[in-house]
Design a protein around this nucleic acid. Sequence first.
DNA 1: GCTTGATGATTACACCTGTAGTCATGGCGA
DNA 2: TCGCCATGACTACAGGTGTAATCATCAAGC
Lengths: 133, 133
Amino acid sequence: MSASEESPHSGAGERITDAEHAVMEVLWDRPRQTAAEVCEDVCAARGWSLATVKTLLSRLVQKGALAAEPDGRRFLYTPLIAREAYVGGESRRLVDRLFGGSAASLVAHLAESEALTEDDLAEIEALLKELRA
Amino acid sequence: MSASEESPHSGAGERITDAEHAVMEVLWDRPRQTAAEVCEDVCAARGWSLATVKTLLSRLVQKGALAAEPDGRRFLYTPLIAREAYVGGESRRLVDRLFGGSAASLVAHLAESEALTEDDLAEIEALLKELRA
DNA sequence: GCTTGATGATTACACCTGTAGTCATGGCGA
DNA sequence: TCGCCATGACTACAGGTGTAATCATCAAGC
């Protein structure tokens, strides 16, 4: 595999954890939000307090995953890494770990374990057609 | 998706960590091995000591992921959860977290990010044909 | 000016994880 | 028989993670 894995995903080196990921999703959906705004989106769903969100935001800024743009007394947070990059990285990690790096094996597994609905199959087929075209 | 996600993976409730997973792989490959034997397979690759492997084995037994069958003074360890179940669970977790539960989205992402080689595509196509047949 | 509320920074803390050392015990060779 | 080695159990400990309280500070209102 020769996975050097030293490439910066658009500036972020450190690993984004699960809780942090929830915060990222909110900001990917709509960038430039304050801590309070982010909290409005996730605190209820995850049972968090505003303090928790602030901690996560800080850690994400530290990790270089978020930019904190000063706006008066507070900050507007914006993702520095693209969702694409993150999703891609995580997917690759899974494929490497569990399927020996073969994405096709993943698909095969999903198919065989019936994780794919008829609609999924159709969608994938269409996608493949497009790709091979 | 209505993911109740309470389904037992053949008896294992707790989450298997990364280091533990490496041990599981060895035992999935060949069950009923002693700690020393497992170590022969992973210690070199991961730079572990035998002690580390023993700890991981213990934790896995605790978690219900391994059975420890007494064999004289030592134990022979054997997976209690099928690799299929583990891989399936992990895959589903990823799909749920990053692709809103849509496996097709995952495939689409892999395809678009060029994580799929021409061979992969061919393989998947063949697979689909088989499934739809 | 002084209080108050909003807000980021700092600190806290328990649990998990990776990694390993030490201990107790029992079989086996000398 | 006696000490040694193999082996699992127990203990350890640093760093990461989830979750949050507290602190310092500043803007705005009284």
